[in-house]
Amino acid sequence: MTLQRDVDTLRNIPLFSKIDPSKLKLLAFTSERLEFQPGDQVCAQGERGDAAFIVLEGEADVFVNTEEGPVRVARLGKNDIIGEIAILCDVPRTATVIAASALVTLRISKDAFFNLVTQFPEVAIGVMHELASRLHQTTQRLIEVSARLRRYEGDAA
């Protein structure tokens, strides 16, 4: 419940592990600690995003809207970050996140997030690393899917 515990949690997140504890304390102090109940919406796909969330306790599900309705694409847990894409590149939220249990998050506003990234290159590199690895995964899956599609079209012809 106290600031110090939030700071300890943040220090265990790989992305922040190299940051000076006093700076993490500032981050925690300037961020809002939010408690969600199971089923509460953290953010909704298509909304404008002005903050990212760091999961301190509990779990959350990520849903993406498809033509067949919402589909769960991931489950997030402690130390995961939610919603950083929307604040990094000013696009609407790409997914809906719903608390799967009692969920405690630290809400980092867009300003605080940029403040952090500009002050600490290691955070910027960490974010880049995270995003690049997700891009890599996505690309891999795209290759797989395209190959499968080509095979399917070849079969049809």
Binding site: M1, T2, L3, Q4, A28, F29, R33
Partner: peptide, 8 residues
């Protein structure tokens, strides 16, 4: 404000 500042 305890709930806001969380300084314990």
């Amino acid at each position: 404000i305890p709930a806001r500042h969380r300084l314990g």
